[in-house]
Amino acid sequence: MGAYLSVPSWWRNLDGRYRLELGQCPDCGAHTFPAEGACVECNSTADFETVEPEGTGEVVAGTTITGGAPPEFADLQTQEGSFGVAVVELDEGARVPGMLTDCDPTTVERGDRVEAVVRRIYEQEGIVRYGVKFRPMD
């Protein structure tokens, strides 16, 4: 039993899932991820300007999940072992949570540069959900 996100609720967020679309606040200029709700900087609810980021940034906090993974990621952990999860600060300023990929997660540290790549996230109700993970840059 994993966290339940219906297919429509995944679909309505695809701009965020695939391209990390950000919302730029017209009042203070800060970027918010995902591009909805109130501005993370000033709480303004004025309509965001949507911005597509470069998809690059740096790790500001990270962990390697070695104990029990959430059920929707249990198969991944069984097949590939411990995986890394980071909070990434994009170069535009917004922070995004994301899984690390294509690396040994224990070697990734705060301050490391990463880039967004689209990967399989998990499968629910027979439908594979894709979205962004982060890969260390050389």
Partner: peptide, 21 residues
Amino acid sequence: TEWERMSGTTFAGVYAQMADA
């Protein structure tokens, strides 16, 4: 749920990120 959980983290994982920082 929609974003943080879907990054693969557990509750311990979120607090671990705070500890890391």
